[in-house]
């Protein structure tokens, strides 16, 4: 798989009798932004967790830059540091300040130390408008701020690709915008991104490609204009009808 940054072939995953992924094929080009849409339980989150091998896959292959990272027995530390992931529930470390959250992994995993690292971290906080909250603990930050810190924490590892697992789903509506703004900024900087999201407007505006998932497979994929205005598959049509229905 020479050109793709990330490439999946026939990925299957089940939890006991529950077949969550039934054969996923997906190619992500460098700098591409792909949105995964679909109902809860369609397998979006599991797919992301299978990409960074947080869940071992049952069948199929995942390549990162041409390297098979789904090979059983592979040392996953070096792989995971190249793939950033942000979760719906932030998962910041509550006993550390925002800055300490960001510094931990570069220190322990990349062996970066001292002034250079602090400067780099501070620059990240400034870039995403959080410089004045750097020394606060997660409990002292709003949900939107915590989620942005979680993004910064992942970016501090200089990942080659970022995975986002419904990162705005737990936020109050008025806080969603500030987190989406961060994603927009990353998009402009050319980060390769894979998002599971319910923000249809956002997906339509920014995604290079949209994949609709249902029942553990990618039912339909294509450019956002085509998926949102002229979906070809009946299941896509009915899903979009249900989520895009004008609200009262």
């Amino acid at each position: 798989m020479p050109e793709a940054k990330l490439s999946l072939r026939g990925v299957k995953k089940s939890f006991d009798a529950n077949h969550v992924l039934r054969g996923i094929d997906l190619e992500v080009a460098p700098g591409e932004m792909i949105c995964l849409i679909g109902a809860s339980g369609s397998g979006k989150s599991t797919l992301l967790r299978c990409i960074n091998q947080l869940e071992p896959i049952d069948e199929g292959t995942v390549w990162l830059d041409g390297q098979d990272i789904s090979e059983p027995g592979l040392d996953l530390g070096p792989v995971r540091r190249r793939i950033g992931i942000v979760f719906q529930s932030y998962n910041l470390f509550p006993h550390m300040t925002a800055l300490e959250n960001v510094l931990l992994a570069p220190r322990r995993v990349l062996n970066e130390q001292g002034q250079g690292l602090e400067k780099r971290a501070t620059a990240l906080f400034e870039r995403f408008g959080l410089a004045q909250h750097m020394r606060k603990y997660p409990d002292q930050l709003s949900g939107g701020q915590q989620q942005r810190v979680a993004v910064i924490r992942a970016l501090a590892m200089r990942p080659e690709i970022m995975l986002f697992d419904e990162i705005t789903a737990a936020l109050d509506p008025e806080l969603v915008g500030e987190v989406l703004a961060v994603l927009r900024q990353l998009r402009e900087e050319g980060m390769t991104m894979l998002l599971a999201t319910h923000e249809m407007g956002f997906a339509r505006e920014l995604a290079d490609r949209v994949c609709f998932m249902d029942g553990g497979v990618i039912v339909e994929e294509g450019p956002p204009e085509q998926i949102f205005s002229a979906p070809r598959v009946a299941r896509t049509q009915s899903f979009l009808r249900s989520v895009l229905r004008p609200t009262l």
Partner: peptide, 23 residues
Amino acid sequence: SQRNAAICLGLTERDTMRYVILP
């Protein structure tokens, strides 16, 4: 989820215990 977050950042099991779980 705390352990997962640490593992996803590339931390070893040992560092995860020492810096994230134990404190």
